[in-house]
């Protein structure tokens, strides 16, 4: 018999290393001869979209279009240490480092422009893509490339090095009280499942993912993370099993270690919830990990709703579900 049920999972997640561990992201921003802003940060693009999101933060902070930013992050001899691409920390931490560096660089660019354009204050200048224009006199302008030459003539290098240090405090050793992480990110996922009581097979029919992001730097990237996170959480709940026996992994390839295919995935409805965080770059919080977390508990609660069994051991495999259903029937 096939039975349907709904389930919900709500979570919070503290960003960063935590507990007072020095959580520093260094970043450097430089205007080069090609009129582009080069940002150096040792933050890895692991597929999460850091290269794009961090470039967007840089462009916004420097006041230029995205294609005027070049993010260099692949070489330890050229980039400062920006910490690990983990702990959902790159958008918030390195994003902040880059934001601070680019905001400062923008100020330095404006002061050179002030000299070059003969205004008495940098407030009289606006950046219009790669042009710096005198407000109200848009014909009086200088390009970023020309500005670089002006700066060179003045003997000035337009390069800013900055570091962002996250707020984290060591907790009390005896009571665990304190402020270990900041910021926190929140999420709630709901699912509908169908459980085949004969075979134990669970089909997730629909998922609704509501994710707090502070502010979405790039909604399409956020959705990609949410959908991928849901898939990973679902896979953990239902399929993945290393087959560990006497310390040895028996299921060490994809014919035995099962992860979902396109056919296993439900319809997913994404809801991005925005509530900007004041300490974050343009309000954006990290979401790499939180997007995965609510999927598993939501599915387990939905299985209970469908067939009245509590999953206390992962994965909720077909055999385990059949076993629990039988156990329940025997008790009744």
């Amino acid at each position: 018999m096939k039975k349907r049920g709904k389930g919900i999972g709500s979570i919070f997640y503290g960003t960063g290393y935590g507990n007072g561990f020095p959580d520093v992201s260094n970043a450097c921003a430089e205007l080069k001869a090609d009129g582009k802003i080069y940002v150096y940060a040792g933050a890895t693009e692991v597929g999460q979209g850091a290269k794009t999101a961090l470039s967007q933060i840089a462009a916004e902070a420097a006041g230029v279009k995205l294609d005027k930013v070049v993010l260099v992050h692949e070489d330890t001899s050229k980039t400062p240490d920006s910490g690990t691409a983990a702990a959902s920390r790159q958008t918030y931490n390195t994003g902040n480092g880059i934001r601070i560096a680019c905001e400062q660089l923008k100020q330095e660019i404006l002061s050179i422009a002030k000299e070059a354009l003969g205004t008495n204050t940098t407030m009289g200048i606006k950046i219009n893509n790669d042009m710096l224009e005198v407000k109200g006199l848009p014909d009086k302008k200088i390009s970023l490339q020309e500005l670089y030459i002006e700066a060179e003539k003045m003997g000035k290098t337009l390069r800013v090095d900055k570091a962002f240090v996250a707020h984290t405090m060591k907790m009390d050793d005896e009571t665990g009280q304190g402020a270990p992480y900041w910021p926190y990110t929140f999420a709630t996922y709901c699912v509908e499942v169908e459980v085949d009581t004969d075979t134990g097979k669970v089909d997730v029919l629909k998922a609704v993912c509501a994710q707090d992001v502070g502010r979405a730097v790039n909604p399409m990237l956020v959705e990609g993370q949410m959908e991928g996170g849901f898939a990973m959480g679902m896979s953990w709940a239902l399929y993945e099993d290393l087959g560990l026996s006497n310390g040895k992994i028996k299921n060490d390839n994809f014919s035995k270690y099962i992860i979902p295919t396109s056919l296993d995935m439900p319809e997913i409805k994404n809801i991005i919830v925005e509530d900007p965080e004041s300490t974050a770059p343009f309000g954006a919080k990290g979401i790499g990990e939180p997007v995965m977390i609510p999927a598993m508990p939501a599915i387990l609660n939905a299985i209970y709703d469908a067939v009245g069994i509590r999953i206390t051991k992962l994965p909720a495999s077909q055999q385990e579900i059949v076993r629990l259903i039988q156990e329940k029937e025997n008790q009744q």
Binding site: G47, M220, E223, G224, M226, E227, G228, G229, F230, A231, M232, F254, I259, P260, T261, S262, L263, M265, I268
Partner: peptide
């Protein structure tokens, strides 16, 4: 369905 992806959840 014969191509595994661990990042996207296949939707996009």
């Amino acid at each position: 369905s014969g191509n595994l992806c661990r990042c996207t959840g296949y939707k996009k």
